[in-house]
């Protein structure tokens, strides 16, 4: 069983003051690459001083890439975990770059999280990369399911099977993003219940909730729109199976007044609370 985290929100500089003023924030997540361990923003320091847990959330390791994780990036993530005294660090099941040495191609950065093909071969590479990361990181690692706009041809496993196998082989923990399960439902026709049914629930570290928008039948996981009912419904489905140790709201764009974020957090608490009874 994982440590209880409670209700949290993604800390972003644009909403730092608002987050400090929000009641009932047990913890925050910071984008690991956006902070410097020796010069933490004052707002984060104040949150830490009053006991708010801070979890570094990496976005550039690219654990699902064909190449080994970059030692410098891994060391930087480890350093942030220590500087923040974090109980765990999180990253993504994704690739973020390609090409470079050994490929005969120029290196290219995607600047975004892209889906790993759910094949046996890709799973082998991902497991090996996760083991390398686990060896370097001073705290447990949890990895997140991402939102995808496209699918790879020739996939051999469902999302649930892939995640279960990943946990079984590496002992890695899971950060389940219910908005991303919803995204993959709309964009790839994958029923969230399938992934939830197969999830190794004891590996669940925490849950992400975020807003997005549907355009022309495609769900864009924008993190810049309000959280919608279908996403809260996936959260309810998850909570019906297990009580997540933590739930965190992500908002990265188009920041609303803090009262709106407070209302979204309240809606999240209501879903989790309803499942508890």
């Amino acid at each position: 069983m994982m440590d209880r985290l409670g209700t949290g929100i993604g800390w972003r500089p644009e909403i730092a003051d608002g987050i400090e003023a929000l009641p009932g924030i047990d913890w925050v997540e910071v984008v690991a690459e956006n902070i410097c361990p020796g010069h933490l923003p004052e707002s984060l320091q104040r949150l830490r001083a009053r006991g708010t847990v801070v979890v570094p959330h990496g976005v550039t390791l690219g654990l699902g890439g064909a190449e080994r994780p970059d030692p410098a990036r891994l060391a930087a993530l480890a350093e942030r975990a220590e500087a923040l005294d974090a109980p765990l660090v999180t990253e993504h099941i994704a690739f973020v770059r390609a090409g470079g040495p050994g490929t005969g191609l120029d290196p290219v950065e995607a600047g975004h999280l892209l889906p790993v093909p759910r094949t046996r071969d890709a799973l082998d590479v991902l497991c090996e990369n996760i083991r390398i990361a686990q060896d370097v990181l001073p705290v447990p690692l949890a990895v997140e399911n991402i939102a995808a706009l496209l699918s790879w041809p020739g996939e051999e496993m469902s999302e649930g099977e892939f995640l279960a196998e990943l946990v079984g082989r590496t002992g890695v923990r899971l950060l389940i993003d219910v908005a991303n399960l919803h995204t993959n439902h709309v964009n790839r026709g994958e029923d969230p219940a399938e992934a939830l049914d197969r999830l190794p629930l004891e590996a669940l570290a925490y849950v992400h909730v975020a807003g997005g928008v549907e355009r022309d039948g495609v769900w864009h996981d924008s993190h810049g729109h309000p959280v919608t009912e279908p996403v809260l419904d996936v959260l309810a489905q998850l909570c019906a199976r297990t009580m997540p140790p933590g739930v965190l709201l992500e908002r990265d764009e188009n920041f609303p007044p803090v009262a709106e974020l407070a209302a979204e957090l309240e809606a999240v608490r209501a879903v989790v609370g309803a499942a508890r009874v």
């Binding site: 995607a110 496209l150 041809p153």
Partner: peptide
Amino acid sequence: PGFDPERVRIQARAL
């Protein structure tokens, strides 16, 4: 081959 060209276009535009 095997990718949905429309989705690849949407992904590229999003990136």
